[in-house]
Amino acid sequence: MTAASERQFAQVTIGEALGPFEITIGKPLVRRYAAACGMDSGRFRDDGEARAEGLPGMIVPGNLSLSLLSKLVTDWIGSGGGHLKRIGTTYRSMVLPEHRLTLHGFVTHVDSDSRAVEIDVWIENDDGERLVIGTASVEFPTTA
């Protein structure tokens, strides 16, 4: 999941996998991300404040899940001309920090005329439960 290469449209095939990549989101990252985004809710800062809201403890903000899945796609695109046109996410269940997670992606559609690619993305826990699911659209320039 590094972005050194340039993905070429001609390389892309339906069924191609992005990842899987194993991650664990630490509480320091949750706090830093929330601070960087100006999200001041206690549920992203402190276990006690989160519990006061009825949560089991600090939770990972949906925006961070979206950012991780966006990065999964932009790293796959690399430094070439393709660009992330759209991403949609559904947060099906809480993502908790300090749990092992896996980022998954699959190319599901390639349109040669519009040079557009559709990708399924999701975050899964160790029980195989998909906590965050989404889709992304990538477009490649005609000159790439």
Partner: peptide
Amino acid sequence: NPRYGKSGANGEIVAPPSFAVT
């Protein structure tokens, strides 16, 4: 990704796409 952050093209500092949700 060299497209984003300090080393953006033409010396610009370009945000990654998901910066938009902030």
